[in-house]
Design a protein around this nucleic acid. Structure first.
Length: 261
DNA sequence: ATGACTCCCAGTGGGAGA
C-alpha cells in the first residue's frame, strides 16, 4: 500500500457558486488531495456542471443541482457507489443532500436549510428537513456502520461556535430547536470530529462578507464533520482551512477536513 | 445602524444567504 493510501482525508466546502469558485476548488484539491470532498451551494443546473474539468483533475464526481440556489456534489479520488440524491421519502424540490460510498465509507454531504428566521416558514421547513435527515441517517447507519455526515449544517452547536453569542442568542443558527436537532444527530452515535481535538478559541467556518468580518475574525462554526462510532477511533485530525477565505473572491465558507488512519 | 457584501436572475433592482 502506498504512503498516500495510508491516510484518508474527507472534506466539505460550501463554495457559494461553483461557477465562480471552480478554479479555487481545483487549486485547493491540488494542494489538498482528499479521498472525498462534498460541495454545497454549487448553484448550477446539471447541464452546466463542470464535470469534465473535475474528472480531468482526477476525481470522480456525482452532482445534483438547480438554478440560483442549493446544489451539492460528491467528488472522490476513487469511483464511488450507491449514490442517492436528497432524502428518500421526503419530498423536496431543493437539491440539498448527496450520498455515496467511498472506499467502504458511507459519505453523506448535506446543505442544511438556512431557516432565515425562527418565525419564518423557512424555519418550519428547516425543522421538518432536519427530522427527515435524522431518520435517513439512522437508516444509513444501520446499513453502513462506517459513516460520515458532513456539510454546511447552518447550525452553530454551542455558544463557543459563535463570535458573539449574546447578540446571536435565539437567532437563526443558534436557536434551541436547531441545537436540539444537532444533538439528535449526535444521539445517533455520531461525533463532531472537530471537537475531538483541542482547537484554537474562536474557530469559525463561515464569516460574513460584510463588515470586514473575516479580518476581524467574526464568524460562526456551522460547517461540520460528524463521524460514526466505527470511525471515531480512526480520526487523527480535524481542521478548518482558512487559507481559501484569503483568496480574491472567496467563498464565505472555509473547507473542513478530517483525517482518518 | 433595520447597514455593510456577494451571488443570482434580472435588467438599470431585488431576494437570499447566514
Amino acid at each position: 500500500m502506498s504512503e498516500a493510501a495510508a491516510v484518508r482525508r474527507f472534506a466539505t466546502w460550501n463554495v457559494n457558486s461553483l461557477a465562480v469558485r471552480l478554479p479555487q476548488v481545483l487549486d485547493w484539491l491540488a494542494a489538498n488531495p482528499v479521498e472525498a470532498l462534498v460541495l454545497q451551494e454549487t448553484k448550477l443546473t446539471d447541464d452546466k456542471f463542470p464535470y469534465a474539468e473535475i474528472e480531468a483533475a482526477g476525481y470522480a464526481v456525482s452532482f445534483f443541482g438547480q438554478k440560483t440556489y442549493n446544489g451539492v456534489a460528491l467528488l472522490s479520488r476513487e469511483p464511488h457507489e450507491d449514490v442517492v440524491m436528497n432524502i428518500p421519502g421526503f419530498a423536496d424540490e431543493q437539491a440539498r443532500v448527496i450520498t455515496g460510498t467511498v472506499g467502504g465509507v458511507r459519505v453523506i454531504g448535506g446543505y442544511f436549510p438556512n431557516g432565515q428566521a425562527p418565525d419564518s416558514e423557512k424555519f418550519v421547513y428547516k425543522m421538518a428537513w432536519l427530522q427527515a435527515l435524522r431518520d435517513v441517517v439512522q437508516q444509513e447507519l444501520a446499513a453502513h456502520p462506517k459513516l460520515i455526515l458532513m456539510g454546511d449544517f447552518n447550525i452553530a452547536p454551542e455558544d463557543r461556535d459563535v463570535y458573539d453569542p449574546i447578540a446571536w442568542a435565539g437567532q437563526i443558527h443558534c436557536t434551541p430547536e436547531e441545537r436540539a436537532h444537532f444533538q439528535g444527530l449526535i444521539g445517533l452515535g455520531l461525533t463532531d470530529a472537530f471537537r475531538l481535538f483541542e482547537q484554537a478559541a474562536k474557530s469559525w467556518s463561515w464569516w460574513d462578507y460584510r463588515n470586514l468580518a473575516f479580518r476581524k475574525n467574526q464568524g460562526l462554526r456551522i460547517d461540520h464533520i460528524l463521524v460514526s462510532e466505527a470511525l471515531r477511533g480512526l480520526v487523527q485530525a480535524c481542521s478548518i482551512d482558512k487559507l481559501p477565505r484569503k483568496n480574491e473572491r472567496p467563498s464565505d465558507h472555509a473547507p473542513v477536513v478530517v483525517t482518518l488512519a
